Amino acid sequence: MQSRTCLVTGAGRGIGRAVALRLSGAGHRVALTARDERALNAVAAELPGAALVVPADITEPGSVDRVVDRIEQHWGPVEVLVANAGAGSSAPLARTGDEDWQRMLDLNLTAPFRCLRRTLPAMTANGWGRVVVVASTAARVGEPYIAAYTASKHGVLGLVRAAASEVVRKGVTVNAVCPGYVDTPMTEATIATICAHTGRDPDSVRKTLADKQPLGRLIDPDEVAVAVLSFVDNPAITGQALNIDGGGVQS
């Protein structure tokens, strides 16, 4: 495949970092965005190919437009979008406040929507594009105490399917990966929250989360990145959601 211009959101750590490394290793130009400029610079220094650091909080109105404007000024239109930025929250539904609910929707659903809205026109005009959204197994099944997170991830999977249907004849594919518990800072934050509420020790909580995957361990970020790259390479797959959870959700 020829070198493409890529944008990875939430690229400063975890899955985003792993995806950026895989894309760069495959010969693509990779623009990195997240709020933490220092983390982005560290990832950029690891990439073997061209990198562009564009710090931003993509939940802010207009920020996605500014990020893509800067990429276009340097390299031209975004050809591969990996909408990875996301966060979780945990609380019983009855104790989930409006602010927490909105925060989950803003980052996990509205931000990917804005990224697609901004990048799809150039992809369809050029007759080639790839979009991969990092969703979650929470987009496929419901679990207790993560109502806001689950709703946002179910929503983004609907967005993926609708967008894929719109652009299927225009050389653009739109897909999602649905990881289980991945060995990332986000999972570490989940472990810390559970420990704070239950008094359990971190090792036992980590084992509980690992055991949710029939594989018996946390998923490695690079295992998600490999799946993302497979969607970039294959023009015949669109509107799909691939579970990466060691067999926990079979579909």
Rank of each mutant, 00 (worst) to 15 (best):
V8S: 02
T9I: 08
A11R: 03
A11Q: 03
G12K: 08
R17N: 07
S24W: 13
A31R: 05
L32V: 08
D36K: 08
A44Q: 11
G49L: 03
A56D: 03
I58T: 08
R66M: 12
R66C: 06
G76H: 13
V82Q: 05
A83Y: 01
S89I: 00
L93D: 09
R95Q: 15
T96S: 01
T96K: 00
R103C: 06
M104C: 03
D106F: 00
C115R: 11
C115V: 11
R117K: 15
A122Q: 13
A125C: 09
N126G: 15
N126Q: 13
R130N: 13
V131N: 09
V141E: 08
L157S: 08
V167I: 09
V168R: 15
A176M: 09
A176C: 07
G180S: 12
T187F: 01
A189G: 14
I194H: 13
I194D: 06
I194T: 15
C195V: 14
T198Q: 09
P202H: 02
V205Q: 10
D211H: 09
K212A: 15
Q213P: 02
G216C: 14
R217S: 05
D220Q: 15
D222P: 04
V226T: 13
F231S: 10
V232H: 01
P235Y: 10
P235I: 08
P235W: 08
A236I: 06
A241N: 06
I244F: 00
G247M: 07
Q250C: 14
S251P: 15
